[in-house]
Design a binder for these strands. Structure first.
Length: 128
RNA sequence: GGAGUGGACCGGAUGGUCGCCGGCCGGACGUCCACCGGAGGCUGAUGCGUUGGCCUCGGACGCCGGCGGGAGGAAAGUCCGGGCUCCGCAGGGCAGGGCGAUGGGUAACUCCCACCGGCCGUGAGGCCAGGGAAAGUGCAACAGAAAGCAAACCGCCUCGCCGGCUUGUCCGGCAGGUAAGGGUGAAACGGUGAGGUAAGAGCUCACCAGCAGGCCGGGUGACCGGUCUGGCUCGGCAAACCCCGCCCGGAGCAAGAUCAAGCAGGGGGAAAAGAGCAGCCCUCCUCCUAAGAGGGGAAGGUGUCCUCGCGCGGCUCGGCCCGGGCCGCCAGUGACCCCCGGGUAGAUCGCUGAAGGGCUCGAGCAAUCGAGUUCUUAGAUAAAUGACCAUCCCUCGCUCGACCCCCUCGGUCGAGCGAGGACAGAACCCGGCUUAUAGGUCCACUCCAGUC
RNA sequence: GCGUUCAUGGCGUAACGGUAGCGUACUUGCUUGCCAUGCAGGAGGUGCGGGUUCAACUCCCGCUGAACGCU
């Protein structure tokens, strides 16, 4: 685990906040997923990761959706230093109630790293 | 003690670490935008129109620190009613939708309170879209003779006619009479008794039930109680069409207002040129998308009336019509430049102090209203109000120990371990209704059993 | 935020307020050496809770679920 010495804030600059930013991530068409969630990824120019949550009504009731979003925000906040840098992420949970926080944390980290790897290989493939 | 009825209330607690949203105060680093006039405070003169002096201060966003705040009783469903905003509105009418005992409450209601009537419950209490069926139209399967200005299948009867022979208080047929009896059905045109008759029948009479009308008493009223008269019976369904009475303009904070990058496009001017583009809503197709662009093809079609008004055509608004507004009826436009307006992304406002809550007093059976006093209690916008840990509190399961007990079962207490703690998340704001809800607290009342 | 439509056997679908059908699937028996086909029979249903009515899939009210539309 990363030590908690660094202040792990979660200001607005670490979130995707407009439809333009979401569209940019979707149109990059790089995804990775596991049994709990799907992550879309795209490069950005701000030097740190940013996250956006897309939780549709199919996931569940408002209480379930809020629970998902809170757990995902907390997982991103505590693990922002371990995630790939300079990448925008859009996280889409699968329908159903969220699992325990440890599982959400592990799923987010693993899936985001896999998406970032595809991003790099795809960029190489496009350039070459 | 058990069973139950009605109502009110709570909706895990405490601590630690790390965060999020918005408010106020302070600090200063970065970015952007403004810049010599303006803003705020104190104070002086004045003829109240003005004017002088001093002090302080650039703004927004991001950053850091501090202080205090941050989901519900249903925030839900969106079933009603309003406020607010924009649009519309010559007057009326139809259509469409909703509601329906009475009196009150309210901004309003399909809500609430009280009361009346009906049904259910031993009871406390609960439920009811509860106007009109002698305005009209319609419906009632199956069964049954018959299902609605009644009707004769069986039965009963013979004042009439015919036939039979066993000559009778007989049998059969025709023609009639009869709604008392049978059976069917959810429902069959009052019930009991007496008279009456060939047999019967409200045919007549008495009482009862019910209907209509009058009168008396009580109540604001729905209605209740009593009494008299009438004809003797006049059924059900309007959550079937319908009739009567009352109410309803449409959309919704993504309403609406302000500012507005870049690209494209609109209007005007100037300049240049004489080729090209467009012509008209809508529908479909292809590509594309933030606001769009291009091409092709053929079809879609309009509830109503009166008064006033009205040249024709088009667009737009209103649920429709009549109608309101605008435009055209003289065929426009242009690369670049200047000016103007609309408007997309985005930003700001709307945005939370309100038909608001608590307490006291008064009016009222109550819903509710009035007066006084006090409190301020979320404002996000890819959307905050949280995550993790510990302890405590409940519930359940397992194990161990003690007690009740002769033992088992069972019960009580204590300890340990494990699991669980509901329904559910503000999105402009209120008043209701409906639905979901682990566990718990309090109040009033009813029935049953027991004790004193 | 504002609306619309729907819910019938396992599946797909009918039914003026009056006996809930049809196809397919399932199952039992016959036919065949066996299977398929064919023949005869059977079971299985109106999303839930109330109300109106003599009687409700149908009418009314309230829920639940699903599929859509506009902004």
């Amino acid at each position: 685990m990363v030590e908690a010495s660094e202040g792990r804030r979660f200001p607005r600059s670490h979130r995707l906040r407009t439809g333009t930013e979401f569209r940019a991530v979707y149109s990059r068409k790089v995804r990775a997923s596991n049994g709990h969630l799907t992550v879309c990824a795209c490069e950005n120019q701000v030097g740190h990761p940013r996250v956006g949550l897309s939780v549709s009504r199919k996931v569940g009731t408002a209480v379930v959706r809020n629970r998902w979003k809170r757990l995902l925000r907390e997982a991103f906040r505590l693990n922002a230093g371990r995630l790939p840098q300079g990448v925008d992420l859009v996280v889409i949970p699968r329908p159903g109630p969220p699992p325990f926080f440890r599982d959400v944390e592990a799923s987010l980290c693993n899936t985001a790293r896999r998406a970032a790897r595809r991003l790099n290989s795809g960029a190489v493939g496009n350039s070459g």
